[in-house]
Amino acid sequence: MGEIINYWTFIYGPLAIFLVGVYGLLTQKNLFKLVISINIMDLGVNLYIIALGYMDNASAPIYTAKLAVTSSRFVDPVPQALVLTSIVISVAVTAFVLALVIKNYEKYNTLDLIKIKGIEND
């Protein structure tokens, strides 16, 4: 049971959240929903990255007065730095793509991907 929970928490759970986003990309046709799917994928990837850096009984990678002696009992700081970068990039992309959604609505008067495709092809 413990193993199953381990696998769920550290690998399958984050991957499942990522794949929920993929599922959204495959099935949804509202532009807002597609952007939401991308954000969900992002959540899954971020969870996966942090999960791979996590260790039991380790503390956050910040030196404080209490944890005086340096030891390897810190969580890996590299994945955290990468996730920070990826979150900021994702908010930049989200801001841009939401502006695009608004412009798409202004141009085509609909948010339905299939209808927009139809208008494009005419």
């Binding site: 532009l31 991308i38 959604v101």
Partner: peptide
Amino acid sequence: RGYYPSFLYVIISTFGSLLFLLGTITIY
């Protein structure tokens, strides 16, 4: 004013870059 192609490009390319991130961290 190619808003629809640009949107398509954003979606596809973001999916690609997230996969790249997954691969990168797995390698790490």
